Computed example of a mutant assay.
Amino acid sequence: MTTISIIGGSGFIGSRLVHRLTNQKNHNIRIFDKAPSLTFPQLCKVCDVRNIESLKGTLPEESTLINLAAEHRDDVQPRSLYHDVNVTGAANLCQVAREKNIKTIIFTSTVAVYGFAPLGTNETGQIAPFNDYGRTKYQAEQIFKAWQAELPAERTLVIIRPTVVFGEQNRGNVYNLLRQIASGKFLMVGNGENRKSMAYVENLAAFIEHSINFQPGVHTYNFIDKPDFTMNELVGSVKRTLGQPEKIGFRLPYSVGYAIGKCFDLLAAVTGKRLAISSIRVKKFCANSVYSTAIDSTGFVSPVPLTKALEQTIRHEFIEKHDDQPVYFSE
């Protein structure tokens, strides 16, 4: 039986992953997180990747380690948390892995390591992060690679770089967009022809499960579900599922939207409050973010087609009632 230690397993992706893995009788699942698991409290031990002693006291010997822990919001304060959690956390996990004879680490990084990347960027794309999240995630990748290189014939490192992840029970950027459309208050910024790569949480969890049995070496993959919607197509699809007219009315020019975002940046700085609108969010909304991936070479096939995943999420959140289920706040 394989013992699998999931760092950050109480969150959105982790909870979906644990749900998949607990259906397999040959896995012994353990969750390690700074917050208790609302879905699997019996499997969870509270610890913090920033505290190496707490990791040493809890992580089991010779387990497969999946690191989902991250500091990732756009507005994290203090900003040093990005380094403390993403970089120092990676170093602490590697040190404990050495001491506990852990031979496999699966690390969820991010396509944010590429920054505002050219269309179709694959795993060999130029590393050019534009924010602290992408920068510190790439630094963490290098720490994990150094750990693997110490015993390259014995150690397995899987680096997964997902694009924006959405799904039922999530309260991140995709949910906020869907909620605006559902409420009828959505305002399109720009011409809507920019395209977005997306990833459904169930499919990402399935690929993490798929990668558990990879052989020694370094395996790096972007994670994307295809096809890539334009914003116009995405909005139209949401409205169609909700039974709303698909036509998009007034469009706010990008220059005006970005200026408004700057005003909200100033307001946030003055008040110290986290606001839903910012210049970086306007910029990301209007940018193309289209990636390609070599995942097909592993034999993996996503279990849920993207169009069906989007429809399931919309129905779950805005048509059906699921008030008894926990929700997860992320970006």
Rank of each mutant, 00 (worst) to 15 (best):
K103S: 01
T163R: 11
V174M: 11
V18M: 15
I314R: 04
P60D: 08
Y133F: 11
R240L: 01
I127A: 04
I6L: 04
A90W: 02
K239M: 05
P303R: 05
S80P: 11
K239Y: 02
G243E: 03
R161H: 15
I4G: 02
A117K: 12
P245W: 02
A112C: 14
Y82W: 01
I29E: 03
E233H: 03
C44V: 00
V290W: 02
R135V: 10
I106Y: 10
F107G: 04
K283T: 03
T271C: 12
I102S: 00
F130A: 10
I13G: 10
I31M: 01
T124L: 08
K321N: 00
I319W: 06
D75G: 11
L178Y: 08
Q95A: 09
T2G: 03
K284H: 01
G14E: 11
G257Q: 07
Y82V: 06
I277L: 13
I105A: 00
C94A: 09
R79S: 08
H27S: 05
S289P: 06
Y82F: 07
T39K: 11
I181A: 05
I248D: 00
A140N: 04
E71T: 13
E141W: 00
V327C: 00
T104K: 01
L234V: 05
Q126F: 03
F207Q: 14
L266E: 14
G299H: 00
E331R: 15
F12P: 08
R274C: 11
L43P: 03
F107C: 09
S54C: 12
Q42M: 01
I4D: 01
K103T: 04
F116D: 14
T313I: 02
T3F: 11
E331C: 15
K283H: 05
G172F: 06
G14M: 13
F318H: 06
A69N: 13
A206T: 15
Y200G: 00
A199S: 05
R135C: 12
A128E: 05
H219Y: 03
E317V: 06
N222K: 06
A205E: 09
V256L: 06
V256T: 08
V301Y: 00
R50T: 10
I295H: 05
S279D: 01
R20E: 10
R195D: 00
E317R: 09
D74K: 14
I31W: 02
L59V: 12
Q95W: 08
K247T: 11
T88N: 08
E331Q: 13
I224T: 08
T124Y: 14
S15E: 14
I248A: 02
D228P: 03
F144V: 07
N23V: 13
E311F: 13
V218A: 09
M188N: 00
G249P: 02
G299Y: 01
I212C: 09
L306R: 13
F214C: 12
